[in-house]
């Protein structure tokens, strides 16, 4: 098992490991080599490091060209610059032709952008890519999972967007925990009073909330939904049927991300009461990551309150309507 400090280092190490085995792997940088912690990759594989400068649209379209010739480019830079600045290139020239390009979007969520402010806080990225046909969307929760996810997505013959962080991610999993693409992972099973679905670097808060709720006598099933698309509808439906009510927790606008994805599964397969914890469709501001997440509705207390609310609804008989 490789060593790394955060999600960006995990990405870099995984790409190096992939590149050592297969000469089709290349890295496309938009002056993002240092931000991606990929300097070691460039040193080991100088002819596979393509630097286009501060030009994300070009980076994505160049990657499409490379992929059309059988290479497997990883494009890594800030998540919003991939999904917003270069959205059309991603959609029309990578997703539409189904090319083998992998996108690693760092600074995901308010947790990732924190003190930089709204220009560098990317809380719409997952929603944007989810709405594009043919693209796999992954939001792992820590460096160990990012390392494994970067390797797992390399096996998909098509486009993938993976959200990474900015060094403030908590460690949630041990190194050996596998990353099974497309499948939910039940992380804690205290009971079936409510389902708690979470993903990304905010998962540690859901773990803490589940623990506190258990101490209060509310037993939840905590689920990591690291693959947003394709969503594990079968696995999620089974949990919804078992618990009857649910709370979603995401470091993303509540439009387009995990809350929407779970709501869709619920609407189609098992209608239940759902509360969505996340950024409530407003622009946040600068501040330390933990404080910003707390202030904008993603604190452990917010999660606890949301679960208490749905459990009360369930007890009153208005959970599953």
């Amino acid at each position: 098992m490789s060593n790394y400090k955060g999600t960006r280092e995990a990405f870099s190490q995984a790409l190096i490991d992939l590149a050592q085995e297969d000469d089709r792997f290349v890295f496309v940088s938009a002056d993002s080599l240092k931000a991606m912690r990929a300097t070691a990759f460039a040193e080991k594989f100088p002819d596979r490091y393509i630097e286009v400068g501060i030009a994300e649209q070009n980076a994505v379209a160049v990657a499409a060209g490379l992929a059309s010739c059988g290479l497997i480019p990883y494009v890594g830079t800030y998540g919003g610059f991939i999904t917003m600045r270069a959205c059309e290139q991603l959609r029309t020239f990578v997703a539409y032709p189904g090319l083998h390009v992998k996108f690693i979007g760092i600074n995901g969520g308010v947790f990732g952008g924190e003190r930089e402010g709204v220009t560098h806080q990317f809380f719409e990225d997952l929603g944007i890519v989810r709405s594009i046909p043919g693209i796999t969307v992954v939001a792992p929760s820590d460096a160990h999972q990012v390392y494994q996810a970067v390797k797992a997505i390399s096996k998909i013959d098509g486009p993938v967007y993976l959200r990474a962080g900015s060094g403030r991610e908590h460690v949630v999993y041990d190194q050996e925990t596998p990353f099974e693409l497309g499948k939910i992972r039940v992380l804690r099973k205290y009971g079936n009073h409510a389902a708690l679905f979470a993903n990304g670097f905010i998962l540690y808060r859901a773990i803490e909330a589940a623990k506190r709720l258990n101490e209060q006598g509310i037993q939840v099933t905590l689920v990591d939904v690291h693959t947003l698309k394709p969503i594990d509808a079968e696995g999620i439906t089974a949990i919804l049927q078992e618990c009857g009510v649910a709370v979603t927790v995401e470091d993303h606008n509540i439009i387009g991300g995990l809350g929407d994805a779970i709501s869709k599964v619920s609407t189609e397969h098992c209608p239940v009461r759902i509360e969505r914890v996340g950024l409530q469709d407003i622009f946040p501001s600068s501040g330390p990551a933990e404080e910003v997440a707390d202030y904008y509705g993603m604190s452990v207390n917010h999660i606890v309150d949301a679960v208490q609310k749905v459990v009360q609804k369930k007890q009153r008989g208005c959970g599953c309507e």
């Binding site: 393509i50 649209q57 070009n58 379209a61 160049v62 990657a63 499409a64 060209g65 490379l66 992929a67 059309s68 010739c69 059988g70 290479l71 290139q89 020239f93």
Partner: peptide, 10 residues
């Protein structure tokens, strides 16, 4: 840009 990618691949 697409052509640049293809030319780089070459």
């Amino acid at each position: 840009s697409l052509g640049v990618g293809i030319a780089l691949a070459a």
